[in-house]
Design a protein around this nucleic acid. Structure first.
Length: 399
RNA sequence: GUGGGUGUAGUUCAGCCUGGCAGAACACUUGACUGUGGCUCAAGAUGUCGCGGGUUCAAAUCCCGUCACCCACCCCA
């Protein structure tokens, strides 16, 4: 027997109904906030992700699905932001549309070892706002993320907020971190010792208890690495969030694993998720458009993991039980009645009445049981007697 | 890439420790005055015990290998 490839899942009708509802809620809210849908290809040039995510990130080095073809290397997209920036530039949207707000829903691919909340094909639902840098825009994006959670019925999450500063600040921060950690690094776990040279920010994020304790001791003073503009920008954002009564937790140790993030970053985590506890995350990427060959254009975005939303117990989107039931089940008994029933079935449907009939030649009793399982309101019985008298029986299943 | 756990009916699982006829519940089929559902009762069908090898008179059970899934590390949404 064939099996779905490792880390992929079939979404069967019962669950599919839930997915549609999540997507519908998303579309409704995105539209309220003025975001328009963008659909980009699932395959992209491998270089796009090397340039945007960073050639030395885990995602690019180890998790890409590479498709060699026609002497070129395509990859299944591991995320959407790079594709959307590519589309923005390729279609000259900075000239045609200027500041643009996009939303997207679709599958992403990373060749990881599957576990709870982590698949090789997973689905993102997210937004990108390209062409403006204003703390109010950051606040809108954050507000949009929390609005979605509210609409999904998800509570009990944590909203973590931090700033990485502008690209120059990031560099400075990395230097400071290395300096502070230099004499201590031998006390950290082997992973962290690796991170020291590779991605020093991640040491702040280590789950190892010993490392955490050491990190707690390190006092990180924003003023040491953030420039004045970044500091006041972040302060403005916090003021706006406070004023709008949006709750957040300042998390100085929150760093992102992808190279393109700058400035405002955030992550939404939830205890229902297990080890992979990020429900969604995002932030500014003010240097990415230029990195991909455009002008210096600022941008911000975030994405939720659909599979992770579905892991939250408080999620209250309708499931199959609340689906609109089939209205009528048509029972026929014997081949002659079936012919007439088939015409009747079409007439019912043309009149907008959902209706089904039996194709398994079951007994009357079995057909009624089927009708009951389907939860129909009415059953039409068309048997030999009815056929002779040119009549039929309409049975109200509820009363 | 590294570690731990689990693979038995359509589904959820028991049985494994201590080897001896393959089990339960739910679901399914049929029947209970011939053509009337739900509730109840009765009867019935359903298996490569993940796969391969070994030990044994005898293996779902013990041993070795292998594959798959789940969880965790790493990394990320």
């Amino acid at each position: 027997m064939f099996k779905a490839p490792r880390g992929t899942k079939d979404i069967l009708p019962e669950e599919s109904y839930k997915w549609q509802n999540i997507e519908n809620i998303g579309r409704k809210i995105f539209s309220l906030y003025g975001y328009q849908e963008i659909r980009t290809p699932v395959i992209e040039d491998i270089e796009l992700f090397k340039r945007s995510l960073g050639a030395h990130t885990e995602v690019v080095e180890k998790q890409m699905f590479v498709i060699p073809r026609d002497e070129e290397n395509y990859v299944l997209r591991p995320e959407a932001t790079a594709s959307i920036v590519r589309a923005y530039l390729e279609n000259s949207l900075e000239n045609k549309a200027g500041f643009s707000k996009f939303f997207y829903i679709g599958p992403m691919f990373r060749a990881e070892r599957p576990q709870k909340g982590r698949l090789r094909q997973f689905h993102h639902l997210g937004v990108e706002a390209i062409g403006a840098k204003d703390p109010y825009l950051d606040a809108e994006v954050i507000n949009l993320a929390t609005k979605l959670l509210l609409e999904f019925g998800i509570d009990g999450y944590e909203f973590k907020l931090n700033t990485l500063g502008c690209p120059e600040d990031k560099k400075k921060f990395a230097e400071i971190l290395r300096k502070v950690l230099k004499n201590e690094i031998n006390h950290f776990c082997p992973d962290c010792q690796n991170r020291y040279t590779r991605n020093v920010f991640r040491i702040l994020d280590c789950k190892n208890e010993a490392c955490r304790a050491l990190i707690q001791k390190i006092k990180i003073d924003y003023k040491e690495y953030l420039c004045k503009d970044c500091l006041s920008y972040f302060q403005d954002l916090k003021n706006i969030l406070d004023f709008s009564k949006i709750k957040y937790i300042i998390t100085p140790h929150l760093v992102r694993g992808l190279d393109y993030y700058t400035g405002t970053v955030f992550e939404i985590s939830h205890p229902d998720l297990g080890s992979q506890d990020a429900l969604g995350a995002g932030g500014r990427y003010d240097g990415l458009i230029k990195e991909l060959g455009g002008k210096e254009i600022p941008a911000i975005g975030f994405a939720f993991g659909m599979e992770r939303l579905l892991l939250v117990k408080s999620l209250k989107v309708e499931s199959l039980k609340e689906r609109p039931n089939l209205n009528t089940y048509l029972i026929t008994l014997g081949q002659k009645t079936k012919a007439k029933g088939f015409i009747l079935l079409d007439q019912m449907r043309s009149a907008g009445i959902s209706c089904e009939m039996d194709y398994e030649n079951k007994s009357l009793k079995a057909q009624l049981r089927k009708a009951n399982d389907l939860g129909v309101d009415f059953v039409i019985i068309l048997g030999e007697d009815e056929l002779k008298k040119d009549t039929l029986i309409l049975k109200n299943m509820v009363s």
